[in-house]
Design a protein around this nucleic acid. Sequence first.
DNA 1: AACCAGGAATGTA
DNA 2: TACATTCATGGT
Length: 220
Amino acid sequence: METKALLDIYESLHRAYGPQNWWPGDGPLEIILGAILTQRTTWENAAKALGRLREAGLCSLQALDAAFEAAVAEAVRPSGCYRAKAKKLKAFAGKVSERFHGDLRRLLDLPLDALRVELLEIHGIGPETADAIALYAAGRPAFVVDAYTRRLLERLGLLHGGESYDEIRDALMAVLPADATLFNEYHALVVRHGKIRCRPTPRCEGCPLQEACAYTGADA
DNA sequence: AACCAGGAATGTA
DNA sequence: TACATTCATGGT
């Protein structure tokens, strides 16, 4: 993949959609909890679950660590896969508690590579969630590769379709400047664009990537 | 009424 | 290593 092609895509998307302002404020912990809760669900459902965690007084590492898994599960029910996610949330709280003395900063302040290794050891955190946490909670330049990213790059002819997560991530990070702000907006823009469902004809009317690719959204 | 949404763990060959 | 199944709510 080439730097210019990828930056051109970014420019087109940014011109069309503007800044997406993903995961602002909230604080590192809630960003992490949200990253787990949004797996295989809409952000609306994840936000609902996060709100219920707050209501239940479970929005802290100590509270999560001490709480019954069933209580956590009940709170996060709206996000789906709720028993599995309750286990994941407690796994994260437990890891920070035992390995980092309950101090989230000790984890987040690690160098990117070390941070990613630590995150991947935690039950419930795979490559995409690890990069989302590194980028949006720790502010590190980690490129988040999701289904939208794959589909876009495949349809633009930059990928063939058999690549692993790490292959795609490493290829992108090898040619793009290590800029957390850029990666933050890039991922958010790819998702924003990917949600658009183009009509078969005319194809992608108003699509910002029309000249590069007539059909990069979801299947209509 | 199938299908998808800001995945990952687990089981099987 | 590579693919199938499971988790499970809520909106089209």
